[in-house]
Structures are given as structure tokens and as C-alpha cells.
Amino acid sequence: MESRPVKMRGKVVNGVAEIKVLMEHPMETGTRRDEAGAVIPAHFIEQVTCEHNGNVVLTAEWGTSVSKNPYFAFKVNQAKAGDTIKVSWTDNLGESSEGSLALK
């Protein structure tokens, strides 16, 4: 299944970029059961990488208790209009997606 691209919004305030990110992902815990009583396998984003003009500025590791369709916000120092922010994720099944944003 093709993963949906990461949605991002951002603005620069006094040289700091405030980035808001939405990811489409089921974030299954592996403890839920379907209607037939079968365990729904764990399926969750494990790693998130945030880049500023190609340099990694922040990484995150997540467990199964991050909410479905994760919302995530972070801030990048020394940012200005025209800079590129990229966010990518990989999950426990090896799926991945990314999105990027040119700051205004």
C-alpha cells in the first residue's frame, strides 16, 4: 500500500521556523482485536527525521502510543524564507513517506 505524503505547514518567527506536520498512519498498537477476535498486528511509525536544507536537525522515535494519524510540531533555529524543511518517517513494517516545505 502506498503511504500518503506527509502534510506540512510552517512559518518563520524571529528566525525560528515553527513546523506543523500531519502524517496519515493507522498507528496500530498490536493489542486491538478485529470483529472476528483476531489480533490486529502492530503497525506504527518508529522513526521520524526532520531536515533543514538537507541537514538533520531533529529525529524522533515513537512507540505505539502515539495517536493515529500523528500530529507533530517542532521548531528549527536559524531558519529563513526560502529554506527547505523535510520530514520523513519509517514504520515497523518498513513502509515510509515524506513531505517537504519551502519556508515563506
Binding site: 502510543s65 502515539v66 500523528p70 500530529y71 510540531a73 517542532f74 528549527v76 533555529n77
Partner: peptide, 21 residues
Amino acid sequence: LSASFKLTQFSAADVSLRVKM
């Protein structure tokens, strides 16, 4: 443990997310 965020000198120590409880 729900989430961890590794910072650098280029990221502010200010993160938000939504979690399950």
C-alpha cells in the same frame, strides 16, 4: 515510553504531539 525526540543545536527544545492514554 511513548516518544523520544533527539535534539541538535539547530532544533529548539519545543515539541508537540498527540498520544493515546
